[in-house]
Nucleic acid binder design. Structure first.
Lengths: 128, 128
DNA sequence: GTTATTGCAAACAATTTGCACCCAC
DNA sequence: GTGGGTGCAAATTGTTTGCAATAAC
C-alpha cells in the first residue's frame, strides 16, 4: 500500500480541488487536457484508483452507470430520484457521530462514508 | 410510472426473497435458469430496473464494478475495505430517524437509503 | 387480435490491460 | 542505467438495445 503521490495523481487531485461537484473520469481527462496536461484516460483511471486507495478520493455511480469522482473532503450525501436519476445534495449529514465512533475503532479504519436516499423527486411524483 | 408486475419481475423478486445477500444480475440469471426458468439476461436487467423504479429493489456497485441487487426490505449498510474490496455489514443503521422525517416530507418521497463507510479492514491495515 | 414482454445476439460504453516509451532518481 | 509511471490502442465486460417470436388480455 504505497502512499507516494505521482505527477498524474497530483494533477487529478489539483483539478478535483477546484471542482464543486463530482465528475466522471472522462470529464476529468478532458478538463486536464484542456489545461494542457498531456494525460491519457487510462492514467486518469489509474490515478483515481490510487487516490481512492489513499482515502483522498471517493466515487459513486450515477444513474447512467458511470462513476463520479470527488474529494473525500467534499461530503457526498444525496436524495436521488429513482425516476429521473437526479441527485439533490443533502445539507447536513446525520452520521458524523457514528463515523467518529468508528474512526476510533482499531479494527476498521474509516476514511469516509456515503449516504444516499432513493425515492421520487417532486416533479416525478406527479407523472404516472 | 406503471406499477404492474410482470411474470419475470415476479420470479426475480421471489428469488431475491430467498437470498440473504446482494447478487449480480448475471448471478441472478444463472440461479433462475438453474430453477428451470427460461429467462434471458436482458430480461433480468429489465426486471431489476422496473423493480428499482417501484422502490422494491435496490442496487449498489461492488468493488469490481458490477452492480449487486437486493430487496429494499433487506437493509444494506456496510463497512467497505478500500484495499480488498470486502464489505462488512453493519448491524445497525444510524439514519432511520432521518429517513422517517424525510418520508413525511411531501417534496421528496423516500423509498430507501444506503449508507457505506469506506476505509481499511483489519488485515489490510497490516499490509504495507 | 392487439399490445406488451421476452430471449437472443449485436451494439455500446465504461473501465482495464499490454506494451513500448519515457522520465525521475 | 533501472524501475516505475505513462500514453495509446486493443481487449474486456457489465449493461443496453433492436427485433422477431411469444405470451397476456
Amino acid at each position: 500500500m504505497k502512499t507516494q503521490i505521482t505527477r498524474s495523481q497530483e494533477s487529478v487531485l489539483k483539478l478535483l480541488e477546484t471542482l464543486d461537484r463530482p465528475l466522471s473520469a472522462q470529464a476529468l481527462c478532458t478538463q486536464l487536457r484542456q489545461q494542457n496536461h498531456r494525460i491519457g484516460l487510462a492514467t486518469v483511471y489509474r490515478s483515481l484508483e490510487a487516490l481512492k486507495l489513499q482515502g483522498l478520493v471517493q466515487s459513486r455511480s450515477a444513474a447512467n452507470g458511470e462513476s463520479l469522482y470527488s474529494l473525500v473532503k467534499q461530503d457526498q450525501h444525496y436524495l436521488t430520484c429513482l425516476h429521473c436519476g437526479e441527485s439533490f445534495p443533502l445539507e447536513t449529514c446525520p452520521v458524523h457521530d457514528l463515523e467518529m465512533q468508528l474512526r476510533s475503532s482499531a479494527s476498521f479504519k474509516v476514511f469516509y462514508h456515503t449516504l444516499e436516499f432513493f425515492g421520487l423527486c417532486s416533479p416525478c411524483q406527479s407523472e404516472h
